[in-house]
């Protein structure tokens, strides 16, 4: 049986006013893989990532064309439900952004809003999510403590736990380790490898070493175009396009 892509993106174009940020990007993102997007600042990789859960919708004077299908359904169709989309496709930000609440309440926030679970089931869901984010052992006895008392690395994993609690299919990560120290980075990377057993992950990173370490596929963006997309191994050993080679070997960017 052929594996169906999680996301099928066809001829995606995106404009901020008169500035075109993405040019005819077409790419399939496969399930239970980590896809890394690399490229210099302003190349369109974060814009692309945010198109995948319609986070750009709120930015005024933007325009999108082309098609993004999530498991076959057009996420920009007029009847598409953005709340459901963002529950299925969660985003982890560059800087951890826990709510100024307890650790427990942060993770319980999504399920409470959705009204999906309560009581004992909610407690189990919070525990499962914290375990899923490899944070449970560190916070099991301090669930009522403020989330902001955690270290930055723990806060980032808490944000991942918060996301897991709403049972997503896809996790988008925008520079998830750029604010973290090397040990916290290693933990998040290890967590990503564990998470890909169940989730599809797309990560934007400035760290080429990180892309090489954690991802299965890598896409190189430049000036809004997807220049090359291939197995990570191939991209970092023998890229096909000269521009990719020049970027990853530090000749420009």
């Amino acid at each position: 049986m052929t594996l169906q892509p999680t996301f099928q993106i066809e001829m995606l174009n995106f404009h901020y006013g008169a500035t075109q940020a993405l040019h005819n990007v077409s790419i399939d993102i496969m399930p239970r893989e980590i896809t890394a997007l690399i490229g210099p600042s302003g190349c369109g990789k974060s814009t692309f990532l945010r198109c995948l859960n319609r986070m750009n919708d709120t930015i005024p004077d933007t325009e999108i064309s082309g098609r993004i299908r999530l498991e076959g359904r057009d996420i920009y169709a007029p009847d598409a439900d953005t709340t459901e989309l963002r529950q299925r496709v969660g985003l982890v930000f560059q800087r951890p952004n826990p709510f100024p609440q307890s650790i427990f309440d942060n993770v319980a926030f999504g399920p409470r809003v959705l009204g999906t679970v309560s009581g004992r089931n909610l407690q189990e869901l919070v525990e499962d999510s914290l375990r899923g984010a490899a944070l449970w052992d560190e916070v099991a006895t301090t669930l009522t403590s403020p989330a902001l008392s955690l270290s930055l690395g723990q806060q980032q994993r808490l944000c991942i736990a918060r996301l897991l609690a709403v049972k997503p299919d896809v996790i988008l990560m925008d520079e998830p380790c750029s604010a973290l120290d090397p040990i916290a980075t290693t933990k998040v990377e290890e967590l990503m490898r564990q998470l890909k057993e169940q989730y599809t992950i797309v990560v934007v990173t400035h760290s080429m070493q990180q892309a090489a370490r954690v991802s299965d596929k890598t896409g190189f963006f430049w000036l809004g175009e997807l220049v090359e997309f291939d197995e990570t191994n191939t991209i970092f050993t023998r890229p096909t396009v000269q521009r990719t080679e020049e970027y990853i070997t530090g000749r420009f960017g």
């Binding site: 070493q209 090489a212 991209i235 970092f236 050993t237 890229p239 080679e245 070997t249």
Partner: peptide, 9 residues
């Protein structure tokens, strides 16, 4: 230097 691609090769 953690070389990649042509440099690594």
């Amino acid at each position: 230097q953690q070389p990649v691609a042509g440099d690594m090769r």
